[in-house]
Design a binder for these strands. Sequence first.
DNA 1: AAAGAGTGTCATGCT
DNA 2: GTAGCATGACACTCT
Length: 779
Amino acid sequence: MLSLKKYLTEGLLQFTILLSLIGVRVDVDTYLTSQLPPLREIILGPSSAYTQTQFHNLRNTLDGYGIHPKSIDLDNYFTARRLLSQVRALDRFQVPTTEVNAWLVHRDPEGSVSGSQPSSGLTLESSSGLQDVTGPDNGVRESETEQGFSEDLEDLGAVAPPVSGDLTKEDIDLIDILWRQDIDLGAGREIFDYSHRQKEQDVDKDLCDGAEQDDTWSGEGAEALARNLLVDGETGESFPAQVPGGEDQTALSLEECLRLLEATCPFGENAEFPADISSITEAVPSESEPPGLQNHLLSPLLTGTESPFDLEQQWQDLMSIMEMQAMEVNTSASEILYSAPPGDPLSTNYSLAPNTPINQNVSLHQASLGGCSQDFSLFSPEVESLPVAGGSTLLPLVPSNSTSLNSTFGSTNLAGLFFPAQLNGSANDTAGPELPDPLGGLLDEAMLDEISLMDLAIEEGFNPVQASQLEEEFDSDSGLSLDSSHSPSSLSSSEGSSSSSSSSSSSSSSSSSSSSASSSASSSFSEEGAVGYSSDSETLDLEEAEGAVGYQPEYSKFCRMSYQDPAQLSCLPYLEHVGHNHTYNMAPSALDSAELPAPGTLKKGSKEKQADFLDKQMSRDEHRARAMKIPFTNDKIINLPVEEFNELLSKYQLSEAQLSLIRDIRRRGKNKMAAQNCRKRKLDTILNLERDVEDLQRDKARLLREKVEFLRSLRQMKQKVQSLYQEVFGRLRDENGRPYSPSQYALQYAGDGSVLLIPRTLADQQARRQERKPKDRRK
DNA sequence: AAAGAGTGTCATGCT
DNA sequence: GTAGCATGACACTCT
């Protein structure tokens, strides 16, 4: 018994929270009405007040659930059940239907409800210029985007109209269900209209793309810099459009390069990369490049015949929308130029591994950690003090006024960060998770954990972007919020308040119905706070006239009493159907004597009819009291404090049978009120739990969205650094005016803001050395 | 007629 | 020990 209580009070809440955290929507209503006895009982407990399935029946009929509620193994039983359900929930990721509805509303920019989409419209306009992507990949991207949405919706359990094809009956049914739910939330039907939605999908796509692009290239300098790059229409190479001095110019001023970096650095002037930043990397393999590709300082993105930045925008769109999903947007050229292991999601962002499954088994955590590995060349004092080995040339590129350079990057190895593997030779050796991550230093452990969690979510089939989109809806003021104020539970905010209020009403009735004794009784009732169901003075007046009549309950939404006052019933016609007559246990003699009016009274007309009606409204205890000629009302018997009650009994000469009946009436009456309070309390608990689950789900979605946004900004930052590295490295010229080979040289940032051009072999050594450090630290 | 909701009552444990 | 409360279980009525 104690364990059951414990589960109902503490375990219930914990379990619902657990369910919520693992993505299972705890719809209490569903469980209440569902035919899933185990789960229902775990949540609600084997309360017959809420389930008609009796526990012993369950034990007898249901396999695997044979346990008695009072079994000492109940703890183990519930624990096992809870763990089992958690494990089972791991293979799926369920998103609450309500959230899906919100997402659907959001996707309808002209929907009646979604008028509150603050950013979408703006984004569409502001990013319209970025939408002018007319590459051949566009179609692919669009179609894949659509596919992604469809899959997303399927994953979410929502019903999104397929891009092509007819709606099945199930779809229509689901749409109807969703619609009905969203009607309550303020959504219009048109949102779920298939043709309507199909008509608007283009707009939706634009919205999404625009929203994503709005996030990218936020830095003006970066965009300006990016747009200065041109692409050779034949080779697909990208090169600066406005290199000062042209090709034959000697080495680009490093200061200028750094200025470029500064202008686009997202960290601002005061920010610095951590000194132990490893390297930027996953997109940049490091080994030696094949002879013929020396000048291909190309990002893997800059492939094909398109404008590289159009492509890049498409990439950002794709990445933002599809996130970790595999895409075939890139042409085969990119595959040739750069291939990354599919296990690295971040590199996947840059080098789309074609045919990669949507839910590829990626591990962001692994990628980030492993990224800080081999191709990691660190500078720092350690690097600077390194002797130039093997006659390799360490070219100090620090200008004389390097102190004026306020580099925002810490000591980091930019070498080989952004160069395609093929440029450096054996891509298989270096590309992949082992590539250093230039921003790895930004990934503190907490972030890595976040990413790891994200990865988990991805593995569960949950697209982070879905969470983002869903959450955007939660944050919007579209009236779709799961406002708990509409919940019936809000009617009774707490046990104490409801109890006290009902006590006061009860006391008022008592005081009005009788003398000074009742007034004192009322005060004591309030103090006790135990009386949850009040009676009306009018009712009691009638009762006084009739004799011993039971108290009248308040018309509680949750706990309706059986014996309503007819006057109240007339005032509250919707309660007319309520009014059970529980006289089943009444002794036949008592019933007869109480209910059969005296023959003479039948002639007295309407007044007698009313009395007859009241007779039928009386409880069996009232009938008994009347039969036993108890000289006071049941209300007094039940509600008077003990002292006054005893005092009242002492005033009358009552037989033993009468006294026994009076005590039974008092006991039963109090127990009846207690039962009503108990049921009300139980219902309140359930409703509050439901609200808590909703809140938790909302929080969870918000956190997911924040996580996605964080990852997105990180990705954008990496892209910027990548492009900047290419830009700087591509402009460097040796004494003969020839560009440096990315297979032989690499850029490194020192902690003092200087930039070094070092041989790649040296950079690789430093990278490996730096790679061991974090590992040792982790040990 | 069956099912479910609502209610009252009893037994029991706890305070 | 008594009174009262809480609650599971059960029975019953009503819809």
